[in-house]
Design a protein around this nucleic acid. Structure first.
Length: 514
RNA sequence: GCGGGUAUAGUGUAGUUUGGUUAUCACAUAGGCUUGCCAAGCCUAUAACUCGGGUUCAAAUCCCGGUGCCCGCACCA
């Protein structure tokens, strides 16, 4: 589906819309409506159940979104992105404008505005440090962080966090105590991060306020045991950097065992990459042919990332594969920086007493906003007859639509059934408006996996089927009559979130019936 | 941020070339009728010229500017 068409459906149904829409909207900011907010919450909850469920050593925390300036100074966000930047038109690399100018004109470049630097770059015939071209862009200020002020007046300078990962690094020292001083230690954060994008585009893919779900795993690189056997035979669609830079971008199905034995990936990395892939397949329900694991080369990665695979999903609305998440091996960069910045020793004693160690970090990062769009792109379709959103049932905003067949006669019973189901913890959408066909159509469009209809038989005290309802399945439109107990059981199963077994073992032998 | 395109009810549109009635139609939404299980039908209602300025007796229509969106380039630590 094209992006406009899809966005129109999502807006009309109240999934999402531009922030401050009545003022014409604001670039890069979006609000989620009832369906969108619920769906996003379900995605986040599914992510949490899956990844925090990977190990009892992985914890979920909820830190503040504002961090003091010292934090982003230590992380490098402040230093690297406050100064004006120029881009080389020839090799398309970007540099800090003042350093480029300094190379061409060693005397005094401090305190100049971006415009003044721009003029001097031209008059000094400054050259690109990479390729030597003089075709440099006009410098532009480039700080992607939102500054805020704490307290009265100018107060203390602070920033909206540019990534949730920083919150986990800040929490490491405390969590080291809370987690009873053991590695590996996983710290998961789900929350908003803020970047002042120069040009937000593509809706949920380039936002100024967006949600990240990230698991930072702190570990000893000499010892990070994982149950690799549980995923060893799983084939992953990988695009390695080597072949890719040589011109071959085809994803190659490679087993996890192969990635370790021949592919050069550490076991802990391959294991978590495998479970990341499983999450997209099994929880989000993305078809295999739409997913690829795209390895970033040395040049493409941030310098502190040692290994990086992006998880990309092919989206028709955005014209190709788009990154939804990634797995980064960040080494000891983060704790080293914050150790230096805070003056706190973030190293720990090695268990074998052989000295101290700054824990390494494996980062599993995921964008719930992007995932929500991906679910709409991949699973929402119009077939001429109806619009159908094939959301996996645990993610659907509503698990069941409850309808009266004839409004005047059956609404009362439908209401009481709906309230019974809500008390059972089921997510219910009671719809009494319009005709029965329209209600089914609305439910299909919202991705509601089941609908039940209250009819004459249901409300007839004399009927042996009193209290039963017709249960209709979204994808097949198939119907059958069920009793209330069975209905609750079916709906409970449907909305139960998936989580991976911490360690997969062979199923115990079960004697065949008879 | 640069260049190009574009903007009419919730959605999709007619009307703009050549200024001139109460701004067209469909779907959607809400209510009514219909004893009725997949957007049926009939009746009724709600609902729009992106914003600001200008030209003109008169502007959805012409001119200028702003904003949003789309495409390309750049950016995406």
């Amino acid at each position: 589906m094209k992006i406009d068409e899809l966005y129109a459906i999502l807006r009309r149904r109240g999934v999402l819309w531009p922030t401050a829409e009545i003022y014409g909207g604001t670039q890069g900011l979006y609000d989620y409506g009832p369906l969108g907010a619920e769906l996003k919450r379900r995605i986040e909850e599914a992510w949490r159940a899956w990844f925090v469920g990977l190990s009892e050593d992985y914890y979920w925390i909820d830190p503040a979104e504002i961090v003091p300036e010292a934090v982003v100074r230590a992380s490098g966000h402040l230093e690297n992105f406050t100064d004006p930047e120029v881009t080389c038109a020839k090799c398309q690399k970007s540099f800090r404008a003042d350093t480029v100018l300094e190379a061409a004109r060693p005397d005094g470049v401090d305190g100049l505005s971006p415009a003044q630097i721009g003029e001097l770059l031209v008059s000094a015939h400054a050259r690109c440090p990479n390729c030597g071209s003089t075709e440099l862009s006009v410098p532009r200020p480039f700080n992607m962080m939102f500054a805020v002020s704490l307290g009265v007046g100018d107060g203390e300078r602070a920033y909206l966090r540019p990534e949730t990962a920083q919150s986990s690094y800040l929490a490491f020292a405390r969590m080291w105590e809370v987690g009873r001083k053991a590695l590996p230690l996983g710290i998961a954060v789900i929350g908003r991060a803020y970047r002042n994008e120069i040009a937000p585009r593509q809706l949920l893919f380039r936002m100024r306020a967006f949600t990240q779900a990230e698991l930072q795993i702190f570990f000893d690189p000499a010892s990070f045991p994982v149950p690799l056997d549980s995923v060893a035979t799983l084939d992953l669609p990988v695009v390695r950097a080597g072949p890719r830079l040589a011109g071959n971008e085809t994803a190659v199905l490679t087993s996890v065992a192969d990635l370790v034995s021949h592919g050069g990936l550490p076991e802990f990395y391959a294991y978590h990459l495998a479970h990341t892939y499983r999450f997209y397949r099994e929880v989000l329900g993305i078809p295999a042919d739409r997913i690829r694991l795209w390895e970033k080369s040395n040049e493409e990665r941030a310098f502190y990332n040692r290994i990086q695979f992006d998880v990309e999903v092919r989206l028709d609305s955005l014209g190709g594969f788009k990154e939804i998440g990634a797995v980064h091996y960040r080494g000891d960069y983060d704790l080293t920086r914050h150790g230096a910045g805070s003056g706190k020793d973030l190293s720990i004693a090695k268990p074998d007493g052989s000295g101290r160690l700054v824990p390494h970090v494996l980062e599993l990062t995921f964008g719930p906003d992007r995932a929500l769009w991906a679910l709409a792109d991949v699973e929402l379709a119009t077939d001429g007859e109806r619009t159908l959103w094939r959301l996996p049932s645990p993610l659907a905003p509503f698990t069941v639509g409850v309808f009266p067949l004839i409004r005047k006669l059956h609404t009362e019973f439908a209401r009481s059934l709906a309230s019974t189901l809500v008390n059972e913890g089921i997510r219910v959408d009671l719809d009494t408006a319009g005709t029965i066909g329209k209600r089914y159509a609305r439910a299909d469009e919202a991705g509601t996996p089941y609908c039940v209809t209250v009819d004459g038989t249901t409300v007839d005290p004399a009927s042996p089927d009193h209290g039963t309802v017709t249960l209709r399945e979204r994808d097949s439109k198939a119907q059958r009559r069920v009793r209330p107990e069975e209905l609750v059981a079916v709906l409970r199963v449907a909305q139960h979130p998936l989580r991976p077994p911490p360690v997969e073992r062979p199923a115990p032998a079960v004697p065949a019936p008879e």
